[in-house]
């Protein structure tokens, strides 16, 4: 059993001491959590002058839905797109599984919160990831061992879309499909942008969902920023691939669909504008208008 998953979030900075309306629907509550998580994620990256913000924002909603609504003590999660470690750290912080003091060490000397997850210190980070094409194969091995040993629990994995250009991903997909694994759910953060161009321009795999479906594992297309839709898809029993249609830089207007936010840190002016867009007033207005993230 994963001890962190067994431990209740005894002090969640997003639900303790904040004005979360407990009567809100689950979707609305997660929207509020997501807004505040975005603010904290931007602050962490701004204070540490660190990039990779765009891809963190594209997958943050799915990570929040998974960790807040789905993961049980017997489950595991592998962040195959390790460059979104920031989103994972913020998600763990939103559950009270990391403290503000921990986040302040992000990218610092002597930190455990490296730019890509390092192993051996947090139960919700089962393996080191960062080199693309590794996390999904390892997660497949974890799921395989559980299935063969009759163990409870599902294995979830989040990949990027460009990561599917790695051959090891397809090797493992062949294996997972052939073994008919019953317990592996893969999320693909389909934000359409990779390191030096769009996925369409660099090495198109369109339609990625169709290509994945050809291996015989059910593929579901989901709005990756719709917490209810992501949660519902993740609740589906059995193995599946969730193609999350996302926006790189989601939630910050000047970052959305801009490749440079794969790399750039925020300057003070940009940070102020981003916070303004994610302010409590903006949250309330968006919710009142029925808006998303």
């Amino acid at each position: 059993m994963d001890p962190a998953l067994a431990t209740p979030a005894h002090h969640s900075p997003l639900t303790d001491g904040h004005s979360v309306d407990l009567n809100l629907s689950a979707d609305t509550e997660l929207q509020l959590i997501a807004r505040r998580a975005r603010r904290r994620l931007l602050r962490m990256h701004f204070e540490r002058k660190v990039g990779h913000i765009g891809g963190n924002l594209s997958c943050l909603d799915a990570l929040l839905a998974l960790h807040h609504r789905i993961l049980r003590p017997e489950d595991s999660f592998v962040l195959s797109k390790g460059h979104s470690a920031g989103a994972l750290y913020i998600t763990l912080w939103s559950l009270g599984l990391l403290a503000d003091a921990d986040l302040e060490t992000f990218h610092a000397e002597g930190t455990l919160l490296a730019g890509h997850p390092v192993p051996g210190w947090h139960p919700r980070i089962p393996v080191a990831t960062g080199s693309l094409g590794h996390g999904f194969p390892v997660a497949t091995g974890m799921a395989f061992a559980r299935a063969r040993c009759g163990q409870e629990g599902r294995v979830f994995c989040l990949t990027s879309d460009g990561e599917w250009q790695e051959g090891s991903m397809w090797e493992s997909l062949i294996f997972a499909a052939h073994q008919r694994l019953p317990n592996l759910t893969v999320m693909v953060d389909l934000n359409g942008l990779q390191g030096f161009g769009s996925t369409r321009e660099v090495a198109s795999m369109e339609d990625l969902g169709q290509r994945l479906a050809a291996f015989g594992i059910p593929v579901l297309h989901v709005d990756g920023h719709d917490h209810l839709a992501v949660t519902a898809a993740l609740r589906r029993p059995g193995s599946a691939i969730l193609v999350l249609h996302t926006t790189k830089g989601a939630g910050v207007s000047f970052m959305e669909n801009r490749m440079e936010w794969h790399y750039l840190p925020l300057n003070a002016e940009q940070y102020a504008q981003a916070l303004d867009e994610l302010s409590e007033d903006a949250v309330a207005a968006a919710l009142a208008a029925g808006g998303g993230r």
Binding site: V127, V138, T140, G141, M142, F144, Q151, E171, F175
Partner: peptide
Amino acid sequence: SMIALAAGIRRN
């Protein structure tokens, strides 16, 4: 994939 699978199996 084989080596990564072996790592995952061991991790489990």
